[in-house]
């Protein structure tokens, strides 16, 4: 299994988000190279699309979305290419990068964002190698369990979600309620 095309979404505590506020923040992240080990390229604004990808910070290796799909805003980390490590490390890294981005957004003074850690969505955008079916779940479940254990403790429960035409997705109830900062510190 290739450790690419992983997505991790961490939801915001507030349901209403002023997406336009994200645009200058993401531009600033590019200008100041706020994520030092990633090449950040551009900002795509899809605030006009209901339940869409929101505002996207486009990078070379990864994209960072303030995604509003299902009317549930959240930070969606999406790895596209170029991970140098094994499968488990790839999953761990996706969780870590998503949480780090949440932390950075929480620290942006103009945003007033807060993320919750009780629920996370994990997806793989690779229908060839990870179709949304039980066998994929069986292959991913141990690594997901190890990753969630690192960040959230051992009481997480998993549910595979979506139909066969949708990407492989697992909704993770972490059983945790710590802040993003505490969650990262734990790992």
């Amino acid at each position: 299994m290739e450790p690419t095309k992983f997505q991790v979404k961490v939801y915001t505590k507030t349901g209403e988000i002023e997406l336009e506020k994200l645009v200058p923040v993401f531009h600033q992240w590019i200008r100041e190279k706020k994520i030092p080990d990633e090449l950040l390229i551009d900002v795509a604004d899809y605030a006009h699309v209901p339940q869409g990808p929101g505002v996207v910070l486009i990078g070379h290796q990864s994209d960072y979305y303030l995604d509003v799909a299902d009317d549930r805003p959240g930070l969606l980390y999406s790895r596209k290419r170029g991970f140098d490590g094994d499968f488990q490390a790839g999953i761990d890294d996706a969780f870590r990068r998503a949480l780090l981005a949440c932390k950075m957004l929480e620290e942006e003074s103009g945003l007033d964002f807060e993320f919750e850690t009780s629920e996370v969505l994990f997806r793989v955008q690779d229908r060839l190698h990870a179709p949304n079916e039980e066998s994929t779940y069986e292959a991913y479940e141990p690594a997901l369990r190890r990753a969630t254990s690192i960040f959230f403790g051992d009481s997480a429960s998993f549910e595979r979600v979506g139909g066969p035409r949708e990407p492989f997705a697992v909704r993770i109830k972490t059983g945790a309620n710590a802040s993003v900062d505490e969650t990262l510190a734990r790992a």
């Binding site: 869409g52 994209d63 229908r127």
Partner: peptide
């Protein structure tokens, strides 16, 4: 979803464009 940013764009010449 897999290769772009989850957006399909209809052009003024009836194409679909995917970016990034």
């Amino acid at each position: 979803e897999e290769n772009s940013d989850s957006i399909l764009h209809v052009t003024t010449r009836q194409d679909i464009q995917l970016h990034f």
